[in-house]
């Protein structure tokens, strides 16, 4: 048996066949490399487990409780900030309206009606422009190109969804 054979067995930590045992022992006496590998494997196969200091579970429970407390604190602080800023923004938006409503309600209603009318006109214009563009575009862009563009967009969306799902699964481990 040659060195390579024994080294491969040792590197794979494969048991030495019984019929090769004496040749192996003889080889170990003359080969420092294989002797070192054999010692490494022997040591690795006789390891001992390390145990935590007593009270590990109690320390975990205390840590979990502390983390929950901190989380509750963060939650309440977040809610407080949200409410405070919400009320502030609401007042900032509502105060001019309320004051106008109190002092000149007709003016306020007129301005609302004007805003509504201009919005409706804008939507109508956008729809008209879109229908014109649609008619013109269909005239000189072939239907196949539209189909191809839609297909590419669908594939890109699918790829994005798959990669998003993969990364979510990876984080879940």
């Amino acid at each position: 048996m040659d060195h390579q054979h024994f080294e491969n067995l040792l590197l794979n930590d494969t048991p030495i066949p019984r019929e090769e045992e004496s040749a192996f022992q003889a080889h170990l006496k003359v080969c420092a490399r294989c002797a070192a590998l054999a010692e490494v494997n022997r040591s690795l196969n006789h390891v001992v487990m390390a145990a935590p200091a007593p009270g590990f579970t109690s320390r975990f429970q205390a840590r979990l409780a502390a983390q929950r407390k901190a989380q509750r604190k963060r939650y309440f602080f977040g809610i407080f900030i949200l409410l405070f800023s919400g009320v502030g923004i609401g007042l900032w938006v509502a105060l001019p309206i309320i004051s106008t409503l109190l002092f000149s309600p007709t003016e306020l209603l007129t301005s609302w009606a004007q805003t509504l009318a201009s919005t409706l006109v804008m939507i109508e214009n956008i729809v008209d422009a879109a229908s014109v563009i649609g008619r013109v575009a269909v005239g000189f862009i072939p239907a196949k190109t539209f189909g191809l563009a839609l297909g590419v967009i669908s594939l890109l969306s699918l790829g994005w969804m798959i990669s998003f799902q993969k990364s979510a699964l990876h984080q879940a481990v």
Partner: peptide, 28 residues
């Protein structure tokens, strides 16, 4: 294993008895 073997060969194991590693207990 190859790396450990190289290290073992370069730095043969000391002969002294060592007492170390707190919390050690037999493997299960």
């Amino acid at each position: 294993r190859r790396t450990l073997g190289d290290l073992w060969e370069d730095n043969p194991q000391p002969s002294q008895n060592m007492e170390r590693m707190p919390y050690g207990s037999p493997a299960f």
